[in-house]
Simulated assay, not measured.
Amino acid sequence: MSRIVAVDWGTSSLRGALLDSDGKALEERSFARGILTVPTGGFPETFEACFGDWMTPGTLCLISGMAGSKQGWREAPYCACPAGFDAIAAQLEWVEAGRIAIVPGLSIERSGVPDVMRGEETQIFGALQLLGLDNARLVLPGTHSKWVTVSDRKVTDFSTWMTGEFYALLRQHSLLARMMPEADPAHDAAAFDQGVAHALAGPGLLNTAFSTRTLSLFNRMAASALPSYLSGLVIGEELKSQTLPRGEPVVVMGAEALTARYEQALAQLGVPVQRVGAGATWRGLRAIADTLS
């Protein structure tokens, strides 16, 4: 397949790339047209307006992300783990046969409780390709962070952590918010490290979070440092819950500023990091497309 159109259609944004046979982006586009902005029945028209000129005869388009959710273009049922490239490709949801397909997300069940991801699976498979890995431990930080285990190029386990959302709730809507500046100041590395260390040593976030207030009350930390300290607390709490052998690398994927914080926090545990950027999505979609050839 000489070229494909790769699309990442999320809740709040829409981005796409025209890829050559090696997965290189020949052109990229981004729009503020997440699935929540698209009216009922409006997905074909929105897609055509954004990427129609790329869809020359014989071109395949693969779409990852929330376009495959119940609120999206068409629901793509979750693919149960363990799952690799072949399982994902076998469960593509075809919007137009042979032309446009939506990549399914992944699901797993643990102790009778399901967990899911949608969109991250494509980034994971892309990272494996970019780094030449068959086995890996990965984290995708964000509003809902994902910790993932890959064995023999298959996602065998993953879990979701609401770290970013809890930070936002505490930062904006709790008693702690009253002690912090309204706008986020520059990252304070020392305060962040202090937060991570306190989380790793403490009994849990329900206890350690209150230290954000007491450090302020006793004038032991400037107001401008408190957001970084709180960020360290919630990320440290997330890391404390993982099994992370010292010296074994973790692949960290996501926005540069956030992945840098995770790298800083993981350093306290003696865990080295390999960082992968946004291009992993395109490489992952290219790899899925290649299984169809």
Rank of each mutant, 00 (worst) to 15 (best):
R153V: 12
R29F: 11
P227N: 02
F43G: 05
L140G: 15
L133A: 07
G277Y: 08
L206C: 12
V234M: 11
S293Q: 01
S145F: 06
M253V: 13
D22T: 06
A97P: 10
S216D: 03
A265V: 09
G236Y: 13
L131K: 01
S69F: 13
A209S: 14
W94R: 02
N135R: 10
A127Y: 07
W73C: 06
I124M: 13
A80V: 13
G10K: 04
W54E: 02
L176R: 04
P114T: 03
L258G: 13
A257H: 15
W54K: 10
H144I: 01
N135M: 09
D22W: 03
V252T: 02
P181I: 00
L18G: 02
I288K: 05
L217T: 07
G34L: 10
L239S: 06
P203G: 07
L226G: 05
R213T: 00
L169Q: 13
L131N: 00
R286F: 14
D157A: 14
L285S: 02
Q91N: 06
S224N: 13
C50K: 00
D188A: 03
V273G: 00
G42C: 05
E45G: 15
V196F: 05
A80L: 13
G132P: 10
L133N: 12
T212P: 13
T163R: 03
S12D: 05
S12F: 14
G34P: 09
S241G: 13
L233V: 01
L92V: 02
E28F: 08
R74V: 12
P272I: 08
P141D: 06
A49T: 06
S159Y: 15
G23M: 06
T56S: 11
S2H: 10
T156L: 06
G247H: 05
R213I: 13
A225K: 05
V7F: 11
I63K: 09
G52T: 00
M180E: 03
W282C: 10
F85T: 09
S174R: 00
R33P: 15
N219V: 10
D8C: 09
T281P: 12
R99H: 04
H144L: 11
M180R: 06
A49C: 08
S159N: 09
C79E: 10
